[in-house]
Simulated assay, not measured.
Amino acid sequence: MDRIYPPFQTPDVQAAFAAFPKTARPGLLALRRLIFDVAEEAQGVGPLAETLKWGQPAYLTPVTKSGSTLRLGTPKSGGIALYAHCQTTLISDFRSAFPETFAYEGNRAVLLAEDAPISDGPLRLLIAAALTYHL
């Protein structure tokens, strides 16, 4: 897992990525990169903190408190997942806008196949909405 950009913020997060199944790692790293890219471009987000929550890589906006936490993981059903806080409307709003584009796990996750292309389209909108949820 060399040449990860941006570098992992903690050894614990790096270990969490190393522990993911080898087949899931590229997609999760692509989601991670997209989260950092969106945070850099979104107005009012500020620096991201990368930490672990429930053993999963989590992304927070501790300086501005503009956003709701996003997490990355591998669901029991397989594939990869982008998790949002289940008490927000993030996933339900996203599902309303893109009902057929993705699979969903209740109000908590967008589910993707391990080999799904991580595009700059709809997922960028979800990430931006999460990182600016409290603005």
Rank of each mutant, 00 (worst) to 15 (best):
A49G: 13
K76L: 05
L82E: 08
A49H: 13
D12F: 08
Q9K: 14
H134C: 11
F102K: 04
V63H: 10
R108Y: 03
R33S: 10
D37E: 14
W54Q: 04
G106D: 00
S119K: 13
Q9F: 01
T10S: 15
L82M: 12
S96T: 07
Q87Y: 10
R3G: 11
A81K: 03
P75M: 13
G121A: 12
Q56Y: 07
T69R: 05
A58N: 11
T23I: 12
L34T: 09
T74W: 03
A129M: 13
L28A: 06
L29I: 09
T88F: 07
I91D: 05
A19C: 05
L125C: 02
L72C: 05
R3Y: 12
M1E: 11
N107G: 13
E50K: 11
S77W: 00
P11S: 13
A116H: 04
E105S: 15
E40M: 09
D2F: 12
G79T: 00
A15V: 06
G44L: 06
A42M: 07
T69L: 05
I80Y: 07
F98E: 09
G46P: 07
P47M: 09
R71P: 01
R95K: 15
G55L: 11
V38Y: 00
F36V: 01
L112A: 03
A116V: 03
I4D: 07
E114G: 12
P117Q: 08
L31Q: 07
F20C: 12
P75S: 08
D120N: 14
G46Y: 14
S68Q: 13
A49R: 15
A103H: 08
Q56V: 05
S68M: 09
I118W: 04
Q87L: 12
Y5R: 14
T10H: 05
G121T: 12
T88L: 10
L72R: 07
L111G: 00
I127T: 01
F94V: 02
Q56R: 13
N107F: 00
T132L: 13
E100G: 03
R32F: 09
I80E: 02
G44D: 03
P75Y: 04
T61P: 05
L90W: 06
A109S: 12
S119A: 14
I80M: 05
G73L: 12
L111A: 00
I4L: 11
K22P: 00
W54M: 02
T23C: 04
K65Q: 14
Y59L: 07
A42R: 10
A58I: 12
M1Q: 09
